[in-house]
Write a protein that binds this DNA or RNA. Sequence first.
DNA 1: AGTTTGACCCGGACGC
DNA 2: TGCGTCCGGGTCAAAC
Length: 271
Amino acid sequence: MPEFPEVQTVLDTLERQIKDRQITKIKILYKPIVSCSETSFRKKLTGQHFRSFRRRGKYLLFEMDDITLVSHLRMEGKYFIMDDSVPLSKHDHVVFWLDDGRQLRYNDVRKFGRMELIEKQDEYDDFKDLGPEPFSKAFNVNYCKDYLKDKKAPIKQVLLDQSFVAGIGNIYADEILFAMNTDPRTPANRLDEDDMKELISSARKILKKAIKAGGTTIRSYTSSLGVTGRFQLSLKVHTMETCPVCGTKIRKITVGGRGTYYCEKCQILKK
DNA sequence: AGTTTGACCCGGACGC
DNA sequence: TGCGTCCGGGTCAAAC
């Protein structure tokens, strides 16, 4: 489940691997991945070079010469760079031939990921519903105060809301709440100013660590190099059996429709 | 209008 | 081995 750190890792890896490479040919094996028609996708991208690599929330933005390719990995999307002699695998859905004989392959077991093309000047409109980036100045205590003041929803659910803050998913939401000793079910409007400071700093701390570790390997996530477990953030609660701090058995509940792991002893519920 | 719920996209995993 | 059912999570739409 690629979240901010995984998306960033994929992006960094791809930048090192394919910056300034030109797309010479494209094949779409599973059409719904691409939001426009195959013809127009191919026409607009063929001949274009991968010029810069950016991220907005969980979206990857490949800036080409004349257009931006936006890609969302959803649950299990991955990119692989392979020599074109290597046979395609079952779940490769979009293939980009590059001018150096290699291929960029989009692989997605669940087929949930999406790609679209946007004009460069349209970017502001396309991402207007996304909240601030966790490391931006805009993500500050005043912003949180304003956003959370009337929110009765559990804080975990708000953390997952991409319009509150961009890029956090289920795994890191659990980890952030563990780091700030807060029960995931705590109504968001019960957080005081200190809690908000804690939330911001915990979020940044956890994400920074995860980025440094190259993302988290859980389920089938691998970076575009196919690195599977060499760099791995060790999780403290998500999918864990016992609390690494007090040894209590980690509980699994559902919050906002999502599987949620927490330590009932370390994480305090404010009602 | 803000909030909450559910459908959707799939195939792997699991139970019988 | 085969079949049916459930599950997961981000996003969007519909319902409240």
